[in-house]
Lab assay of single mutants.
Amino acid sequence: MQGVVKVNSALNMRSGPGSNYGVIGTLRNNDKVEIIKEVDGAYEIRFNGKVGYASKSYITIVN
């Protein structure tokens, strides 16, 4: 499943599905991501070869 990031500035990509996990990357508006699955209000995603988590509130599914 594919998604597009929709933010005003940037969205943190984290090592786990919550803000208490470390930041492993930054997503920008209109970045395209692969959605692997939904976990606790976040999506597990793949972006630029990395797998991490981002809030589903800022990712629009575009299948």
Results as ranks from 00 to 15, higher is better:
G49S: 06
A10N: 11
D40R: 09
A54F: 03
T60I: 14
G41M: 08
S15C: 09
S55Q: 11
F47L: 05
E44G: 02
G16A: 07
R14W: 15
V7H: 11
V62S: 09
L27R: 01
A10T: 14
S19F: 12
P17G: 03
E38W: 04
G16I: 04
V39S: 05
R14K: 07
V7G: 10
V51K: 08
A54R: 00
G41D: 12
M13W: 06
I45A: 00
S15H: 04
N12P: 15
N12Q: 14
K56R: 06
Y43E: 00
I59G: 00
G52H: 02
M13H: 02
G16C: 07
N63K: 12
V7Y: 06
K50G: 05
Y58W: 09
D40T: 07
G49K: 04
N48T: 03
F47M: 04
E34Q: 10
S15T: 09
Q2S: 11
V5F: 00
I61D: 03
N20M: 09
L11Q: 09
N12I: 14
I36W: 03
K50F: 08
E38Y: 05
M1E: 06
M13T: 02
Y58V: 08
G3L: 02
L27W: 00
M1V: 13
V23T: 09
E34I: 12
A42D: 15
V39R: 05
K6M: 09
I24A: 03
P17D: 03
Y43A: 00
I61K: 06
Y58H: 14
T26N: 06
D31N: 04
D40F: 10
K6Q: 10
I35V: 11
G3C: 08
Y53S: 02
D31G: 02
K56M: 10
L11T: 11
S19T: 12
L27P: 01
G3F: 03
A10C: 15
T26S: 09
S57G: 11
V5A: 03
V4Y: 06
N30P: 02
G52T: 01
V33I: 06
M1T: 11
N12D: 14
G22A: 15
Y43M: 03
N29D: 09
V39T: 08
Y21I: 04
E34V: 11
G49D: 09
E44F: 12
E38H: 03
G52R: 01
E34T: 12
L11G: 05
Y58S: 11
V39K: 06
V33E: 00
Q2V: 14
Y21K: 06
V23A: 06
N48H: 10
T60M: 13
N20L: 07
G41I: 04
T60E: 15
E34P: 01
A42G: 07
S19K: 14
T26M: 11
A54V: 15
N29A: 08
G49P: 01
N29T: 07
M1G: 07
G22S: 14
Q2D: 08
I59Y: 00
K6H: 13
N63L: 12
K37S: 14
E44A: 06
I36M: 10
F47W: 11
Y21S: 15
N8S: 13
G18T: 10
G3Q: 01
I59S: 00
K37Y: 05
G16V: 04
G25C: 14
K6N: 11
M1Y: 11
Y58E: 10
Y21R: 05
N8E: 13
Y21N: 09
S57P: 06
N12H: 15
S9C: 15
V4P: 01
V33A: 01
E38N: 03
D31R: 02
D31Y: 04
Y53C: 03
G49M: 04
N20Q: 13
G3V: 03
S57Q: 15
M13C: 07
G3M: 02
V62E: 10
M1I: 13
I35G: 00
K37Q: 11
G41Y: 08
I61Q: 05
